[in-house]
């Protein structure tokens, strides 16, 4: 890989833009490809791609699938670099203290949202992005996309509902709300009254997490991470 190509690749990643690099494994020739032209050119690098080959690389990029593809420009390996996964945790509660490091280990950039300053402290969440904005303000600013998971943990409708309201209008790939079945039913009723269809409300995983009999905060965090992982890969697998 040439240094100028590496520089352009890192710049795209820093800007959180999806980017792919196509490599002819026999010659080492490479082309940098984005969803749209880069600086006025369709590609950068020493590998020339005709229109059909370019479309094939962009298809792999859109599908978030690295791998070897056959194109009119030859057999090439496409490495896809999508922006990092994000997790927005609403509620700086005890379970969040377990969920945050687990999600970070799994490769998520994590943000904790809680306007209650006694909970959202640096001492409880060291080296973590914590905001004390009101959840709907924070959520609107963070703008969840299809690489974002949102988990509400407060059990408090004043905090959870505004966050869920923004999440349901976004492309977030995973939305989950902690709370018992009874709490969840009451939550669904409130959101229905607020104008959400049942089909939209079905996007909320509630109670949050896979049913693994989790009891402690760490076990509950594990069940939530497991479910987020399951949903992430199920969606990637079906091309959705």
């Amino acid at each position: 890989m040439k240094r100028d190509l590496l520089g352009a690749l890192l710049a795209a990643r820093a800007a959180k833009t999806p980017i792919a690099i196509a490599t002819r494994l026999d010659t080492g020739a490479q082309a940098l490809v984005g969803p749209t032209p880069i600086g006025g050119a369709q590609t950068r690098g020493d590998l020339a791609l005709d229109a059909d080959s370019l479309a094939a690389v962009r298809l792999a990029l859109a599908g978030d699938t690295s791998g070897t593809i056959e194109t009119p420009s030859g057999r090439m390996f496409v490495q896809v670099y999508n922006p990092p996964l994000r997790l927005i945790v609403v509620g700086a509660v005890h379970i969040a203290q377990a969920l945050v490091p687990m999600a970070a280990l799994a490769g998520y950039a994590v943000v904790v949202v809680d306007p209650r300053r006694a909970f959202a402290t640096d001492a409880r969440f060291p080296n973590t992005a914590v905001t004390t904005e009101w959840p709907d303000d924070a959520m609107t600013r963070l703008a969840p996309d299809r690489r974002t998971a949102v988990v509400t943990l407060t059990h408090d409708p004043k905090l959870d509902d505004p966050a869920l309201t923004v999440a349901l209008k976004s492309d977030a790939f995973y939305i989950a709300a902690l709370g018992s079945r009874k709490t969840h039913d009451a939550r669904l009723k409130r959101l229905k009254d607020a104008g959400f269809d049942a089909s939209v409300l079905a996007r909320i995983h509630g109670p949050a997490g896979l049913a693994i009999g989790a009891k402690s905060p760490a076990e509950i965090a594990l069940s939530v991470m497991a479910q987020a992982t399951q949903v992430l890969h199920a969606k990637a697998g079906t091309g959705g």
């Binding site: 203290q97 945050v100 490091p101 280990l105 799994a106 490769g107 409880r124 060291p126 080296n127 973590t128």
Partner: peptide, 17 residues
Amino acid sequence: DAPLNAQVNAQANALAH
């Protein structure tokens, strides 16, 4: 929990693809 959190976050940064 606090020092563990800091330690694990640092590890995650090092591990992240």
